[in-house]
Simulated scan of single mutants.
Amino acid sequence: MELTRDEEAALRGEHGSSMETAYRILVATGEAADAERLVKIEWAHLSGVNYNTIGDAGERFLAEFSRTARVKVRTSLNPMGYDADSVSGYGLDEDFIRGQESIRRSYERMGVMPTFSCIPYEILKLPGAGTQVSFAESNAAIYANSVAGLRTNKESAFSALASAITGQEPLLVAQKGQRA
């Protein structure tokens, strides 16, 4: 995959450890999918929020990563494992609440908007048709590509987070014919 000098420097850790980690994720994803290069994005939508799905390892990673990582683009967030405004009525385990709240704080520390929705296109103003975004939520990626006229890969939780941190995502083979 072709990288610019600045991207190569970030991959070598010259822009800090969180940026190095983000570029390592994007390069690994891009190489696995035969991407030719990275492209700029204007918006990222993240999954990997629910403590039930990422567990202690995910919570620890985010707590550490969020100490230095900051998003470069508008970044929205999938739902958590409960509605924080009415948590008392659920009878949830205290360890679950602790882990879920740590995840929430980590994302907010990075500058992620606490939208807690899998339909961010219903909450936030959409950019113009043809705009590159990075969406991890399946329905949001489908909506972006097929209804809103945006362009996105169907990202994983890690690759969408890396895209939010770097402001880029891999240009995948399926998208090559769509670019000017």
Results as ranks from 00 to 15, higher is better:
1 M>K: 02
3 L>S: 04
5 R>S: 06
7 E>S: 07
8 E>D: 02
10 A>V: 04
12 R>P: 05
16 G>T: 03
18 S>K: 05
20 E>C: 11
22 A>S: 07
22 A>Y: 01
23 Y>H: 02
24 R>Y: 12
31 E>A: 10
31 E>R: 13
34 D>Q: 15
36 E>M: 08
39 V>E: 01
40 K>P: 15
40 K>Q: 14
42 E>Q: 11
42 E>N: 00
42 E>D: 12
43 W>M: 02
44 A>V: 13
46 L>V: 06
47 S>F: 01
48 G>Y: 09
49 V>K: 12
51 Y>H: 14
52 N>E: 12
52 N>F: 14
53 T>G: 10
53 T>I: 12
55 G>Y: 11
57 A>S: 15
58 G>C: 10
61 F>W: 06
62 L>D: 03
62 L>A: 05
66 S>D: 09
68 T>G: 08
69 A>V: 07
72 K>L: 06
72 K>M: 01
73 V>T: 09
73 V>E: 08
74 R>I: 04
75 T>F: 08
76 S>A: 13
76 S>F: 01
78 N>Q: 07
78 N>H: 12
82 Y>S: 04
86 S>W: 12
88 S>V: 15
92 L>S: 11
92 L>K: 06
94 E>K: 13
95 D>R: 15
96 F>G: 05
101 E>C: 05
103 I>N: 01
104 R>V: 00
104 R>F: 08
104 R>S: 04
105 R>Y: 11
106 S>R: 02
108 E>F: 01
109 R>H: 06
109 R>P: 03
110 M>R: 01
111 G>T: 15
111 G>Y: 08
113 M>S: 12
117 S>C: 12
117 S>W: 05
118 C>A: 11
119 I>L: 11
119 I>Q: 15
120 P>S: 05
120 P>R: 05
121 Y>Q: 12
121 Y>T: 07
121 Y>M: 10
121 Y>E: 13
122 E>H: 08
122 E>F: 07
123 I>T: 06
123 I>D: 10
124 L>V: 04
124 L>G: 05
128 G>P: 11
128 G>T: 09
128 G>L: 05
130 G>V: 00
130 G>L: 00
133 V>G: 00
133 V>A: 08
135 F>A: 00
136 A>Y: 07
137 E>L: 09
138 S>L: 13
139 N>R: 14
139 N>D: 04
140 A>Y: 01
141 A>P: 00
144 A>Y: 06
148 A>T: 03
148 A>F: 04
149 G>H: 08
149 G>D: 11
151 R>F: 07
152 T>K: 09
154 K>F: 03
154 K>N: 03
156 S>L: 13
156 S>G: 14
157 A>S: 15
157 A>P: 07
159 S>E: 14
159 S>H: 05
162 A>Y: 01
163 S>Y: 14
163 S>F: 08
164 A>N: 07
164 A>D: 05
168 Q>T: 14
169 E>K: 09
170 P>Y: 05
172 L>S: 14
174 A>V: 11
177 G>A: 12
180 A>C: 04
